[in-house]
Amino acid sequence: MLLEVKDLNTYYGYSHVLQGMSLTVDHGECVALLGRNGMGKSTTLKSIMGLAKPRSGTVLYKGEDVAGYPPYKVVRAGIGYVPEERRIFATLSVLENLAMGMKGGKIDKGNPDAWTVERVFEHFPPLKERQGSKGALLSGGEQQMLAIGRSLMGNPELLLVDEPTEGLAPLLVSEVRDMLEDIKKTGVAILLVEHNLRVAMSLAQRLYIMKKAEVAFAGTVKELDARPDVREKYLEV
């Protein structure tokens, strides 16, 4: 197993936002985390990243417990993070944003599969044309590509992606979906938080559905397909 989250408990002040959250992601696998707003999906990603500090539980990444590590150490262990709202550095150019993702500021020469700016541009052609532009001037879709490209520059084996299609026009939604499919094919495992059920089910092999702070359903896409009651209860508005 690449990632094994066990019995994670996270609080925001007095509110207990993750109550014994557990999930796994295997090498090269795409796993989706679904559920309505406020159920703790983003907090799960943040707790893995160290951006929210879990009070108890373990986050085993390749056998190493990274729970409670500061974010930069989690990244150095090999996990990449594409946050909700993208969080592009507005005053930096596209190229600079990509350079921010490089660990230690260098391309890993010893690794023939290392991500380079050119390779990111191959996957996200619109970024190439905008390479000199400031982050603030990009469209929502371009920002999303940049956020994904930026984290790929750190050569993660696992990518945590939070709501990549949120706020995008329908055409862009499928474009971003295809790009994630591409990334998946390169062998990077993805843990995806996604509102759009169609996108999630087309990308993921397995899914977790969260209800208030814990997992309500875990299974394969096929298993969820056979359970309209689960979909109705936990997903549909």
Partner: peptide, 11 residues
């Protein structure tokens, strides 16, 4: 502009 995000990129 965003110190937490810098942290979440391995710096």
């Amino acid at each position: 502009s965003d110190a937490d995000m810098v942290n979440a990129l391995g710096i």
